[in-house]
Amino acid sequence: MKLNDFISENKSLIGLIILMAAVSFANANFLGIDNMLNILRQTSINAVIAMGMTFVILTAGIDLAVGSILAFAGAICASLIGMDTPLIIALIATIMVGAGLGATSGVIISYFNVQPFIATLVGMTMIRGATLVYTQGRPISTGYFDVAESFYQFGGGYILGIPNPVILMVVIFALCWFVLSQTRFGRYVYAIGGNENVARLSGINVKKVKILVYALSGALAALAGIILTARLESAQPTAGLGYELDAIAAVVLGGTSLAGGKGRIFGTIIGALIIGVLNNALNIMDVSSYYQMIAKGAVILLAVVVDSRGKSNA
């Protein structure tokens, strides 16, 4: 591969490296192992959601409901753990709830021809409402049974010094990469985003693929809910507020086109890491949280502008 091709295909990775280099000059503590693991752990929740979002955006869709699904699934999971439900059943049930909610968006989009933005906006509102109703606006503790202790490991535990959420993130990344690049389903996702009409006339069951894509996005949002709930040992009714925007930002920073049909899951991980590094850097440099939001927005804007300039010149 020529150097030029490598650069144009890995702009987000290069951006991440430049960002990290810049921050490490500004603050000597930044590059320490502890801080790196910290960044990875903080990134994991957004990365898991963003990987589901990547599938959705590749089909030229959008999923605004993920933050609400995270909260609802987290509440369900906390209740189940609090009732001493066997761990595996609680986990599967929670992920099924997320997948079911996502699939519902998919059905509304495919069968009732509702724009993904609208369908998932409605989902975001209703599921958040359902979460508030279910929790009565109060946190739900995971309780004091033994199962709560093993559940905690999903968010707060380590294996060989690596935080478990980071391990989960890597496993999900490997699975998503495999599905997108090595399976028929992955091909269909790209084809639908590239041109839905062509996909339909190629004999692809477009409706089914779309429903599965939103179900996957919901399932991964629920998994993110599990990680967050486990770490906090309780489910917050307002958990995940605004997470959909961070996830979309990660996908876009990773070079995936909002028009669909183009993008890579690796880019999304890099995009999530850019956001993670940025948050971390602004914190350790003691930038006030008000300014952090402005800085974060500015960096995302810069990245997207650089990326789109590269495209129009090509």
Partner: peptide, 17 residues
């Protein structure tokens, strides 16, 4: 509009159906 995904590769287009 109906035959080939213009923005994607020859290979993935040809094997799509």
């Amino acid at each position: 509009q109906e035959g080939l995904v213009q923005s994607q590769e020859l290979s993935t287009n040809m094997s799509l159906t």
